[in-house]
C-alpha cells in the first residue's frame, strides 16, 4: 500500500512538473493543480506510513466508549490536507480566472508570447508620434493590439 501510494505521489509530481514546463498557461495551471494534489496525498501518507497496511480505525471516539480504538489513524494530516485542499481550490479558481482574462485581453495562451518587452506597455501617444515619424509604427502596432494572437 505504501509503495503504491509512493508511486502514485511520484507520478503526480512528475506529471505536474512536466505540465509546468509547458508554454501554455492552461497546462501550467493544470500542472500546478496536479502538483498540489501530489503534495496533499503526500501529507496524508507522511502522517503515518507504517500503519497504512494495518487495519486502522477512524480517530473518533465510538458511542459509549471512553477512548479511541487502537490503532487509530493520525487525524492531524487529514485536517491539514482538508485545509490544503480548500486553499488549493481557491487558488485554482483564481488562476483560471486570471488565465481567462489574459486570454480575453491578449488572445494568447502562450507564456512566451506575452513576454516580448516591446509589448509590455501599449505605446503612449508621444511614443506613437515618434514612431510614426520614424515610420516604424507598422512593425509594432499589430503585435501591440490586444486580440491579435501572436503565438498562434
Amino acid at each position: 500500500m505504501v509503495t503504491w501510494l509512493a508511486m502514485l505521489i511520484g507520478g503526480l509530481y512528475a506529471a505536474g512538473f512536466y505540465l509546468m514546463l509547458r508554454r501554455s498557461l492552461i497546462k501550467i495551471i493544470l500542472g500546478l493543480a496536479i502538483f498540489a494534489h501530489g503534495a496533499n496525498l503526500m501529507i496524508l501518507a507522511a502522517g503515518n506510513p507504517r500503519r497504512v497496511d494495518v487495519d486502522v480505525k477512524i480517530p473518533i471516539v465510538p458511542e459509549g466508549a471512553e477512548q479511541l480504538l487502537q490503532p487509530y489513524a493520525d487525524p492531524l494530516p487529514q485536517a491539514l490536507v482538508l485545509t490544503a485542499i480548500v486553499i488549493g481550490f481557491g487558488l485554482q479558481a483564481f488562476t483560471l480566472a486570471l488565465a481567462k482574462s489574459v486570454y480575453d485581453r491578449m488572445g494568447v495562451d502562450d507564456v512566451d508570447a506575452m513576454r516580448d518587452p516591446d509589448l509590455t506597455e501599449p505605446p503612449t501617444r508621444r511614443d506613437a508620434q515618434e514612431l510614426v515619424s520614424h515610420e516604424e509604427l507598422d512593425s509594432v502596432a499589430p503585435a501591440a493590439l490586444p486580440g491579435t494572437a501572436v503565438g498562434s
Binding site: I28, L32, F35, A39, N40, M42, G47, P77, A84, L91
Partner: peptide
C-alpha cells in the same frame, strides 16, 4: 505561477517534515 510553485514546495516540505 512562481508563487504557486513556491507554495507547493512549502506544502511538500511541511508534509515531509511532519512525516
Amino acid at each position: 505561477i512562481l508563487n504557486l510553485i513556491s507554495s507547493a514546495i512549502f506544502l511538500t516540505a511541511t508534509g515531509l517534515l511532519y512525516g
